[in-house]
């Protein structure tokens, strides 16, 4: 752990207005060095604006920004060689060939990665001579990631790095991000993909309406709470079942025939539920015990669906 205040990115009370709207509204966060930090939130939550302020593309209206200890608005020249940036889309001329553009950006750096090895790693070798505009969306995304990484940065900003990727390409991207982290690179990424946040990140920051609504390690956020789901014939007497369960448990049927029991799920509870079903001649199907997902946490905190 790095001491507080010495993270790769330190934002304090950040505000950015567009007209009357506050895209970022008092956002405070710290992204540790050498860790993967995910900004998770729905579209329009202020994730991209926050990242673009860190990259020096926009200026905050108020609050402080420190990236690798520097101010991106004032110290851009010093920061740019140290920071890799993957924008949400585009940024490569349509006529540029993949290998050519990657080589161009590599030539701006003192000790870049080998471009052919990097293309190979991202499955782009056979597209090295393909113009950017002829590449598929997923290929463009991967090239964009390669361009961000090629200068061997200390810190990477990845704005929705896997949006639009097929599963295979998504896994290749995840693998590369994990290797970067293992090599000591700090990564700050935005996503509205739960899976991505849970699997990749050391620290998840849930953002909504330009503010941090919750943060922590993925397992801290989803907590120890578990829930039990099963299917059975519709119309079971849930009141009666609940009376057999510990106080504070909740049960609901939605939609018909689909049951959810929110409780402190222990072996005894499972036995109680199945015994109650047996005594009522109820056959359960798809009985399973789940941890809360980040999606559940998000819904609970904001009342909004992430993927909306």
């Amino acid at each position: 752990m790095t001491p507080p205040g010495d993270g790769a990115v330190e934002l304090d009370s950040l505000v950015k207005r567009y007209g009357a709207a506050r895209a970022v509204d008092g956002l405070t966060l710290s992204a540790a060095r050498g860790a993967v930090t995910a900004l998770l939130g729905p579209n329009g939550a202020g994730k991209t604006t926050t990242i673009e302020i860190c990259e020096g593309f926009r200026r905050a209206d108020s609050g402080t920004v420190r990236v690798l200890g520097l101010d991106p608005a004032a110290d851009g020249r010093a920061l740019k060689p140290r920071v890799g940036v993957m924008p949400q889309s585009g940024g490569v001329p349509g006529t540029a060939r993949a290998g050519e553009f990657l080589g161009l950006v590599a030539s701006f750096h003192a000790a870049p990665l080998g471009t052919s090895a990097l293309l190979d790693r991202l499955g782009l070798t056979e597209h090295a001579r393909t113009p950017f505009r002829r590449m598929s969306g997923g290929q463009q995304q991967r090239l964009s990631l390669a361009v961000a990484v090629v200068g061997r940065p200390e810190l990477l900003f990845l704005d929705e790095p896997t949006t639009g990727l097929d599963p295979q390409a998504r896994h290749a991207t995840w693998e590369l991000i994990q290797e970067l982290r293992a090599a000591g690179v700090s990564v700050v990424l935005t996503t509205h993909n739960m899976d991505e946040a849970e699997r990749l990140s050391d620290h998840v920051v849930i953002v909504d309406h330009g503010r941090v609504v919750a943060e922590g390690a993925p397992e801290e956020l989803t907590g120890a709470e578990r829930q039990l789901r099963f299917r059975a014939r519709p119309g079971l007497g849930l009141e009666e079942l609940l009376s057999a369960l510990p106080a504070g448990s909740a049960a609901k049927e939605s939609p018909a025939g689909h049951y959810l029991i929110e409780a402190d799920v222990r072996p005894e509870l499972l036995a109680t539920v199945t015994a109650w079903c047996a005594s009522h001649g109820v056959m359960t199907e798809d009985l399973r015990i789940e941890r809360r997902t980040l999606e559940d946490v998000f819904l609970e905190l904001t009342g909004r669906e992430l993927r909306a």
């Binding site: 750096h109 000790a111 990665l113 080998g114 990484v149 061997r152 090599a183």
Partner: peptide, 11 residues
């Protein structure tokens, strides 16, 4: 092909 991803920034 091994990639040395450790940071080595510089312009």
């Amino acid at each position: 092909v091994p990639l040395d991803l450790s940071p080595a920034p510089g312009a």
